[in-house]
Design a protein around this nucleic acid. Sequence first.
DNA 1: CGTTTATGATAGCATTACTATCATATTTTA
DNA 2: TAAAATATGATAGTAATGCTATCATAAACG
Lengths: 230, 230
Amino acid sequence: MATLAFKLQESLFLRNPDSTELGQKIIKNSVRLIDKLGFEDFTFKKLADEIQSTEASVYRYFENKHRLLLYLIDWYWTWLEYKIDYATNNIRDPKEKLAICLKLLTEEKKQDVYSEVMDGKALQRIVMAEFEKTYLTKQVDSDNKDGVFLPYKAVCKRIAEIIKEVNPAFAFPSTLASTLILSINHQLYYAEHLPSLTDIKFNPQKHYDKLFEFMQVLTFNALNTRYHAE
Amino acid sequence: MATLAFKLQESLFLRNPDSTELGQKIIKNSVRLIDKLGFEDFTFKKLADEIQSTEASVYRYFENKHRLLLYLIDWYWTWLEYKIDYATNNIRDPKEKLAICLKLLTEEKKQDVYSEVMDGKALQRIVMAEFEKTYLTKQVDSDNKDGVFLPYKAVCKRIAEIIKEVNPAFAFPSTLASTLILSINHQLYYAEHLPSLTDIKFNPQKHYDKLFEFMQVLTFNALNTRYHAE
DNA sequence: CGTTTATGATAGCATTACTATCATATTTTA
DNA sequence: TAAAATATGATAGTAATGCTATCATAAACG
């Protein structure tokens, strides 16, 4: 078993979906269904029907659909942190590290080797459209105590640390990091659905690069420096 | 009647809440209740009980709770645009205009003269916690056709235009404007609930100013310029 | 080989998100 | 001022949602 590749917080689930076939079907198909229906219209009933199982069986894995969404979102940020670690591992120049982070954050995600179960592109769309719904709730404080936001915080922290390396005098490394990630998650959604809110034109061939360009300008200007790859 | 002060899109409601006593009670108490319960747990039944009316009566004003939330959010952005217009009206220096916008966006909202019905502080909290839920849905395109996002777009456009005045060569005025607003709406929520995501400490005496400071740094650096009020 | 464990099948229940109908009170207007 | 239009309340009903509980059975495990 264990084809989901990352070990996530125990508090996210009742039974580890990574450990069984049904669990993996739940994950794989919840990604498909949430991407298709949106989180509001997604239900355990619909998911159960889709995988020829029952509502009761799904409830044995996740307390509710909110926790299931958190599982997917946490998977995404854990994956991203892994990619950042891997790609910046032996880079010394902090500016280059920061540029690599921005690249990884803004680029189109692919079906990765890390998991046969997870559809990277669909997961990226889910993060764009649903991530903020995980913490903009009245249970945010109790969820936070359960540690369900740790993977996202880890990515922010990692980027904030690189920002500090680039400019130790900068007073807002974490604020800048979370602002960048937030904006990255929204701009392409705007490009597609609310185009007047952004200068980035919807164009899957080019918009990832445009987004990267904006983030570089914003970041390196905020830090009173430049970065140009050779 | 007409104590809600702003005329909003007809498409938002079935019956104009501004035109009747019950309508105004609906608005006033939905602000209170959504602020208290969060949008997910808010229902027309609970609202109706609160104002000693019936579910059916509330449904005569709004198609569903999503449209009611849009009404509140649109009210907020219309209010903000009005304040921006008023405050930048006879300012010539575009940098100063931009700084004024950032101030208005980041400052604590007060109970305004513009309406006896609307609680400005509660509304600001609702915008922080619920605004993104209005457009991160599968109906975003049809909602957008109904014009329900126009007030928000107007604020973005207005700020983007001032950005263009400050630096006509800047390639991302709208992207910057929407990024700023997005971040402004989130940072104080982070300060309160997910403090590791920001350098701004939760402190209602100071955090509005800290937020303003960050936004100024980010904005004027992005535009390769500075601004210092005299 | 017996026992734990996972799943399925089914039932049930309170709440949500509406829609519909009818009575009555109030306002408008002819 | 009477008739008509409109607003609200009262009540009922319905499909879907978000669960919880129970029991049977099949598979895995020791």
